[in-house]
């Protein structure tokens, strides 16, 4: 016989959902779970549903804009500092001093890009999953390698590869949003990804500035944008 959850357990599951989602559907779902106490399989389904509700919001989110703006400003400051240093850099030299700043900012860059991916609301167009996968893999790998660089004063081509994976995720996401008519955020994401692919100090500054612009654009035009299928109706 399948295990059934207690009432506090059910409420804990509902709390995993975003606030806006709970305000709209939480009461109904709570009643449904009273009528049909969830099995272990249902609880897994509810957790999946909660993750999905965060990735596909039904109301505009503020945090993606904030994350992009903060990440952009911090990144620009770090890259501008590096711009004034000798080139090519004498490793580890000043670069080792900037690594902690970039390591602290990469999670924000990831949050900003993942946040931008929620702009399509409940739509799940082709390419969105691939973009999110690249964003997660790229930023995770980049972060781990930056930490390794700080701890062991190491640098290698893997850092550029990890950054390129993140860049690819931003470009794919930009193209997906472009198909949904989400201008200018889509174009800025493609530009940001392009800047990350250029191995030059000035491109780091440009990346920070574009990231800041993504934050500002999202503040002015919060998602979710109209899904493409709705646009034709």
């Amino acid at each position: 016989m399948a295990a059934r959850s207690s009432e506090p357990g059910r409420h804990r599951l509902l709390r995993l959902y975003p606030g806006a989602w709970r305000r709209r559907y939480g009461h109904e779902l709570a009643i449904l779970l009273e009528d049909r106490p969830p099995t272990a399989r249902d609880r897994v389904d509810l957790v999946r549903g909660a993750i999905d509700a965060h990735l596909h919001p039904i109301e505009p989110l503020r945090w993606p804009a904030t994350a992009a703006a903060i990440a952009g400003v911090v990144w620009t400051a770090g890259a501008a500092y590096a711009l004034g240093q000798p080139s090519p850099p004498d490793w580890p030299g000043y670069l080792i001093e900037t690594l902690p700043l970039f390591a602290a900012t990469v999670p924000l860059v990831w949050l900003a890009s993942l946040g931008a991916s929620t702009r399509l609301g409940t739509a799940d167009p082709r390419g969105l999953g691939a973009a999110r996968l690249l964003l997660v893999l790229g930023s995770l790998a980049w972060e781990l390698l930056l930490i390794r660089g700080i701890v062991t004063a190491w640098s290698g081509p893997e850092l550029a590869i990890a950054a390129s994976i993140l860049a690819a995720g931003m470009i794919v996401l930009g193209l997906v949003l472009l198909r949904g008519g989400d201008w200018p955020v889509s174009g800025l994401l493609v530009m940001a990804g392009g800047c990350l692919l250029v191995p030059a100090t000035w491109s780091g500054v440009a990346f920070g500035l574009v990231l800041t612009a993504i934050g500002v654009a999202q503040l002015r035009m919060p998602g979710p944008v109209t899904p493409p299928t709705m646009a034709g109706r």
Binding site: W21, R24, Y25, E28, L29, L32, L33, R36, P38, R41, D42, V44, D45, L46, V47, R48, G49, A50, D52, A53, H56, I58, T122
Partner: peptide
């Protein structure tokens, strides 16, 4: 069987 999370995810969409 349709799980409750899937049901409400689909209803929202």
């Amino acid at each position: 069987s349709l799980g409750p999370g899937t049901l409400y995810g689909a209803l929202a969409r």
